[in-house]
């Protein structure tokens, strides 16, 4: 069963419901052991970066996450969960992240309304099974004030345009992150969750 990590950051139920609608069972768990054992793991999250890292640390989730990723199991970070996958964030100062991917989390540039809230279109930068059935220009629901700036451009699967072309999906092998909320992006969002579920079952 896919494990959805519960570390006190936001509404996880919609992620679980979305997976269920896409045909995949999951468990919302705060138990590091259950995360270790899971065939696939999702790290959701809304809120502040530093709080989230703190919560991951105190709940003993950092090691299991690193193990799951090192083992090559499918892993998906959503929104704040995506940002946490990078080395550091400038939100609230300078805070260290999980460092699964090289790169920084930066504040969206001034001049446009922040948070970037609403539906925005993706430009697909490279083909990936995670994007099956998603065509260039497909729209997803975003809510965020910071964006990830991967140090390795080869990680970028899709971008979106909000004052700058920022990374909307990054990934390598079975490890992915999305800045938008697939669980709130109607049919196409559910398709993304389905693609993730398929990878979990194929591994």
């Amino acid at each position: 069963m896919i494990a959805i990590i519960d570390y006190g950051m936001g509404n996880l139920r919609s992620v679980q419901k979305g997976l269920e609608k896409a045909g995949y069972a999951s468990v919302i768990t705060a138990d590091p052991e259950q995360v270790r054992q899971a065939p696939g793991v999702i790290l959701p999250g809304v809120g502040a970066f530093a709080d989230a890292m703190n919560n991951l640390r105190t709940s003993g989730m950092i090691e299991p996450i690193q193990e799951v990723v090192a083992a090559g199991k499918p892993f998906l970070g959503i929104c704040l969960g995506f940002q946490l996958m990078f080395e550091a964030s400038e939100e609230g100062g300078n805070f260290q992240g999980l460092g699964i991917f090289p790169g920084q989390v930066r504040r969206l540039p001034p001049g446009l309304k922040v948070p970037h809230m609403g539906w925005n279109a993706l430009t697909i930068r490279q083909a990936n099974p995670f994007m099956d059935g998603i065509s260039d220009g497909a729209e997803f629901y975003f809510v965020h004030s910071y964006y990830v700036d991967p140090a390795d451009p080869g990680l970028i699967i899709a971008t979106a345009d909000y004052g700058l072309h920022f990374c909307a999906i990054a990934g390598r092998e079975h490890v992915f992150g999305a800045q938008f909320h697939p669980e709130k992006s109607s049919d196409l969002g559910l398709k993304i969750l389905e693609n993730f579920g398929k990878q979990v079952h194929a591994c």
Binding site: H116, G118, W119, N120, A121, E139, F142, D161, Y162
Partner: peptide, 8 residues
């Protein structure tokens, strides 16, 4: 580009 939202 961010889209304008229609909300019932």
């Amino acid at each position: 580009m961010l889209k304008k939202r229609i909300i019932p």
